[in-house]
Design a binder for these strands. Sequence first.
DNA 1: TTTAGCGGTTGACATGGATCAAGCGAACTC
DNA 2: GAGTTCGCTTGATCCATGTCAACCGCTAAA
Lengths: 248, 248
Amino acid sequence: MPPTNPLNQDISLSVIKTACSNCNLRELCLPYGLNLEELERLDDLVSTRRRVKRGDHLYRAGEAFDAIYAIRSGFFKTDVLLEDGRDQVTGFQMAGELLGLDGISTEHHTCNAIALEDSEICAIPFSRLESLSREIHTLQHHFHKVMSREIVRDHGVMMLLGTMRAEERLAAFLLNLSQRFTARGFSHAEFYLRMTREEIGSYLGLKLETVSRAFSRFQEEGHIAVQQKHIRILNVSGLKALMNHRAT
Amino acid sequence: MPPTNPLNQDISLSVIKTACSNCNLRELCLPYGLNLEELERLDDLVSTRRRVKRGDHLYRAGEAFDAIYAIRSGFFKTDVLLEDGRDQVTGFQMAGELLGLDGISTEHHTCNAIALEDSEICAIPFSRLESLSREIHTLQHHFHKVMSREIVRDHGVMMLLGTMRAEERLAAFLLNLSQRFTARGFSHAEFYLRMTREEIGSYLGLKLETVSRAFSRFQEEGHIAVQQKHIRILNVSGLKALMNHRAT
DNA sequence: TTTAGCGGTTGACATGGATCAAGCGAACTC
DNA sequence: GAGTTCGCTTGATCCATGTCAACCGCTAAA
């Protein structure tokens, strides 16, 4: 039932929508571990929500940094560009994950963040986040953990790029996606890829043809079923075995 | 002149030695930007100094995390291990740089830190660092910058591993070392490598033979002079040109 | 329904770097 | 001072992945 005053309705709706305290991602995202009173203080801070259409930039390398972004829904990639035109996808981000941490260092973004599907993000003004985390120990500590986790993730990618074969890389990639979908309550075994073969290749340090061949091979061997961007994982342990195989 | 009481001498010496306020790396390290009073508060915190002999571990993957480490002198590498025995060097660290940031995430170290020469480090208990950075805004902000810088550095390595050829990787590596030595007041053109060809290769995702051949080639082409671990850079712009050459 | 375009698949061939192997020189031990 | 070891260099060969090219099949627009 709409209330008598439609304006109030709008306001309360928008408040509800942008509140961390009300967000079902709060256990994955920045508010992790906060109590109710602390949550409400964080709500004050996370005031801006924005839609980003598929293909649009959330931010570009070189732009001034003043906020980090939490993904409320949707899917992003980040990439870095070299002067000579080469680029590399440095990550794929999904709901509950943070974007923009790279910008703190120089106060300018150092990569591009591009939506791979229509998405919604919450902007978190960074200086206000620092203020609040000076007051809320839990928030401070969790933020540090999130940054550290990003460093650990990057080490994993370095390992992957530095020592793994093409098929190992792709297996690791699929298992990682599967695990992150699971954490968000989706099927661990069946999902749609939001990115092209070329973007996967860029992330994994491979050419798109190599990615495509590896997909076909996994299918032949019964590890997965692929149809375009639709993936079904048929044999998780098979994929895991692929990863740890070579001991060169 | 030694004072009459040799014990006092020892104490004051050790205090002087471990103080950030007295360390000539303070502009590169954690204390960056702090005023005198703040520096003294940081001094209280950085009480433990430790020597790490060449080849020894500062910490190992899996150990409980409770402190980060600032390198006072010396040279380290960090590496990650896969279950199947493969490993990858994730970085080389020199004086003024921090080690252990990866441990914050899980409260356990996720990599090994090994001294490549006899070194000295300052241990900074992490929970106390968090406390202090809740009180000193400048410290908090600078610590965030340092973590972010590590993320940006990792993206650079991902780019290198994902898109560059062997010679480009080595050129980038040499230029990076040169720049970091310069920042520490050493020659930008002449230095000793503290790591083996194999360790360089591991970091760059190459085999030691490939690293060796690339060194030889750089020498033939007059970009550098190599003799074992002694490197002289003869043509900086030549090396830079090597890096941005290919536009595939 | 036809057509255009983009992403994906597959094949043939090329190549950069890995692998295997031999030898060398500097540093360390006895 | 001789012998041993380890790190490095260099050559020959191999192979995983890149490159080039053709074609396929969704999807969307006309």
